[in-house]
Computed example of a mutant assay.
Amino acid sequence: MFKGFNNRDFDVFKIDGLQERMEKLIERIRPKLEDLGKEYAGELSALSGTEMHYHVAKHARRTVNPPKDTWVAFAPNKRGYKMLPHFQIGLFESHVFIWYAVIYEAPMKVEISKKMLKNVMSIKQQIPDTFVWSPDHMKPEAVSHKELKDNGLEDLISRLGTVKKAELLCGVHVAREKATSMTAEEWHSLLSSTFRQLMPLYEMHIVSSS
């Protein structure tokens, strides 16, 4: 059972060298991601009505640069998740992220973008102000839903459908200082509520591809 993150987990990303960082990542963080995968695959399956499989990041393609973040992803495919809209739980050195994600490998980005633009007003109302949006899963920065002024959200969604490498992620950031003090019960409450609030975005993909 997942019990939370500690400072040693975040400090993994300060370690120099690919092999050295990967060794500690595998030792300290990967078991927790496995626990999260086992714990929340079932919950996401129940919420979505589709069997969800979890995939812990292996960073297998890296040959020089050590990873700046790591995660477990959830998708309705045993073989992979990158080509599908999916959910993620992971961490950078600065924070934990809980995402609904459509990344650049997804071939249905144009259709998802069109569907989201048609429903942008309901998305603006449904997503809490404390949630954040990101156009790039490889960067730790994100903008809060509340701060997306005027047509900011429309611009992010449009970009998903018109720029080849564009991505769109929505969810929650938990700063390291807070993340290291949270109990297992607090994590369960946050993860469950976040996934419930993100599920309408995922269901929008299901409707658009059916």
Score class of each variant (00 low, 15 high):
Pro200Val: 05
Leu148Lys: 05
Leu201Asn: 02
Pro31Lys: 08
Phe92Tyr: 08
Ile29Leu: 03
Asn119Gln: 12
Lys3His: 13
Ser210Gly: 08
Ala101Thr: 10
Glu141Arg: 07
Val96Met: 10
Ser122Gly: 00
Asn151Gln: 12
Ile157Gly: 00
Lys32Pro: 00
Val120Phe: 06
Cys170Met: 09
Lys124Arg: 15
Ile157Ala: 03
Ser181Thr: 15
Ile89Tyr: 02
Phe10Trp: 08
Glu93Ile: 01
Asp11Met: 00
Thr50Phe: 10
Leu44Ser: 09
Glu154Gln: 14
Val132Trp: 03
Ser158Lys: 13
Val96Cys: 01
Ser193Met: 10
Pro85Phe: 05
Ala175Lys: 08
Ala57Gln: 06
Gln125Met: 15
Tyr100Ser: 06
Pro67Arg: 02
Lys149Met: 13
Ala175His: 06
Trp71Cys: 11
Leu160Thr: 02
Lys14Met: 12
Ala166Val: 12
Trp133Gly: 11
His59Gln: 12
Ala142Arg: 09
Pro31Trp: 01
Lys68Tyr: 07
Phe195Asn: 01
Val64Met: 11
Pro135Tyr: 01
Thr162Tyr: 02
Asp155His: 07
Asp35Glu: 14
Tyr100Ile: 07
Leu148Ala: 06
Arg62Phe: 13
Val207Asp: 14
Val172Lys: 09
Phe97Thr: 05
Thr180Asp: 07
Asp150Met: 11
Leu47Ala: 14
Met182Tyr: 14
Glu20Gln: 09
Glu51Thr: 13
Leu148Gln: 11
Tyr202His: 07
Lys24Ser: 10
Asp11Leu: 00
Leu148Met: 12
Glu167Tyr: 01
Gly17Cys: 13
Gly37Pro: 06
Leu168Thr: 04
Leu18Thr: 02
Ser192Phe: 04
Phe5Gln: 00
Glu27Arg: 01
Leu47Ser: 07
Pro85Ser: 05
Ile103Tyr: 00
Ser45Gly: 06
Arg62Asn: 08
His137Ala: 12
Ser209Tyr: 07
Phe131Gly: 02
Pro140Ala: 03
Phe74Glu: 01
Lys78Pro: 14
Lys32Gln: 03
Ser144Ala: 11
Thr162Ile: 13
Ala179Thr: 04
